[in-house]
Computed example of a mutant assay.
Amino acid sequence: MKITGVNDRGLIRLIPETRHKPPVLRGLVDTDEEAAILAELEGETSARLVAERDGGPALDRRELVFARRAHDLKVYGQTHINAAFTYTRPTGNRFNSGDRGAWYCSYDVLTSAEEVGFHRTRELANIGIYEDEARYVELLADFIGDFPDLDGAPEHPALDPDPDIGYPEGQALAKTLRRQGYRGLLYPSARRPGGRCFVAFDPGIVQNVRPGASWKLIWKGAPDFSIDGF
Rank of each mutant, 00 (worst) to 15 (best):
N96C: 07
A70T: 02
L59N: 14
L73A: 08
R178Y: 04
N96A: 03
R191M: 01
G145R: 11
R9C: 15
V24P: 00
E115V: 03
G152A: 06
P211F: 14
G101D: 03
G55R: 04
R191Y: 07
H71K: 14
A174L: 06
R192W: 13
R120F: 03
E155I: 07
G55H: 01
G166L: 02
A102F: 00
G92P: 09
K74Y: 12
Y76K: 10
T4N: 02
E63K: 12
F225C: 06
G77A: 11
G98Y: 08
S106M: 02
A174P: 09
K2H: 15
D162L: 07
I3R: 15
A83T: 02
P16F: 04
V6W: 05
F95A: 02
Y87N: 14
P148H: 13
V50W: 09
W103M: 02
F118R: 06
E17Y: 11
G56T: 03
P148L: 11
R61K: 14
E169K: 00
L59K: 13
G5T: 14
P157A: 13
G101C: 03
A172H: 04
G55C: 13
P163R: 02
N96Q: 11
D54A: 15
G5Y: 12
N208V: 08
A190D: 03
F198M: 08
H119F: 10
P90K: 14
S112L: 09
E131Y: 04
I144G: 04
I144S: 12
P161D: 15
T45D: 02
D164G: 10
T88G: 01
A172Q: 13
A39F: 08
A58P: 03
E138V: 02
H20S: 10
R100L: 00
D202A: 15
L185Y: 04
A213R: 11
F225D: 04
R48P: 01
Y76R: 14
R68D: 03
S189Y: 12
I127W: 11
R191C: 01
C197P: 05
